[in-house]
Computed example of a mutant assay.
Amino acid sequence: MKINSARQAWHDCNYNPAPGQTSDAAVLGVVVQKTERGPTADHAIHATLAGRVQSAIARLHNTLRAFGNAMYAAEPNDDDDREEAEAAVFNLACTRASRMTADKRERAEYVAKGVFRRYRYMHQGGQSANEDPLIKPEQFRSWMSAEYGVKLQSAAWGRDWEPFVQLCFDACYDIDAKALGPIGGVIYKMKEAA
């Protein structure tokens, strides 16, 4: 297990390679014969490091844990984690937004889901290297219509939706930071002790 970032540690901590296997071989379900030396204690070191990260994750508030799992877990996320993460983004963005009509609030819930999906894609795999695929309002509106059947008007986009989209991204960053903070603390302590 490499400890380069809290995001990567969250992702990698659930791999459980068997003795002598790399985590990739464990995931693929095959063992590739190599000319290198035989089994080592790497699996024990991985388990120790992963256990510390898993322990930090387990101590997080349910919403933060669900957000982190939806974002970074190595195993396929369950819908409960994703739905709780989307709800957290929506609720936080709404607390920061100006008042909305009931109709706009209903559509705003889907906007928050869409922004969460964009944010997750951008930070997928813990590297945070992907560009926002729906950065242009036309692309985002088209995707929202195709994915959720929600129509967002292009007229007055800058007034009606752009601020809420930004509030959703801000909420994602804030929740992400709260979820990753304790993991970063554990990593810092492990590196300091090394």
Rank of each mutant, 00 (worst) to 15 (best):
R82F: 00
A18K: 14
G126Y: 02
N130K: 06
A129I: 06
G20M: 03
K104C: 01
Q33M: 11
I57F: 07
V111H: 04
P39I: 05
A146N: 05
Y148W: 11
E83R: 15
Q127K: 09
E109W: 02
D78T: 03
A70C: 03
V89T: 11
R107Y: 00
S128G: 08
N69F: 00
A73S: 14
R120T: 03
R59K: 13
V115R: 00
M71A: 13
E147G: 02
R141A: 14
Y110K: 11
I135T: 11
G20R: 05
R105L: 12
V115T: 03
N130D: 01
F116P: 05
P17Y: 12
Y148S: 04
T101S: 15
D81K: 12
G125M: 04
L28M: 10
A41K: 12
D42A: 15
I45V: 15
D24P: 00
G38Q: 14
M144I: 06
A50R: 03
N69I: 00
S98V: 08
D42C: 07
A88W: 00
A87W: 06
E131C: 01
D24C: 00
A44S: 06
S23M: 07
T22I: 04
Q127N: 06
P76Q: 07
R59M: 05
Q33R: 11
Q33H: 09
K136V: 12
G29P: 02
R141Y: 06
R105D: 08
L92Y: 06
V31R: 14
H123G: 01
G68R: 04
R37W: 06
Y121N: 03
S55A: 15
V27Q: 13
A129Q: 08
A44V: 09
G125N: 06
Q139G: 02
R105F: 05
H43A: 14
R120Y: 07
R52G: 13
G29K: 08
C94M: 15
V115Q: 01
G20C: 05
N62K: 12
S55H: 15
Q21N: 03
Q127S: 08
P76T: 08
A66F: 00
S23L: 02
P133W: 13
A58W: 05
Y15L: 09
P39A: 13
A108C: 08
S98W: 03
R107Q: 14
A73Q: 14
C94Q: 14
M100W: 04
P76C: 00
P137R: 13
D81I: 05
P133F: 15
Y72K: 06
V32K: 10
N91D: 14
K113S: 07
N130G: 00
Q54W: 11
V89D: 07
C94W: 03
V27A: 14
L28T: 07
F140L: 12
R37N: 04
L49T: 03
Y121D: 01
T95C: 10
L60D: 00
M122T: 09
Y121W: 15
V30W: 02
I57M: 13
R105T: 01
E106H: 13
H61M: 11
Q21F: 02
N91C: 01
S128C: 10
E106K: 15
V31P: 00
N77C: 08
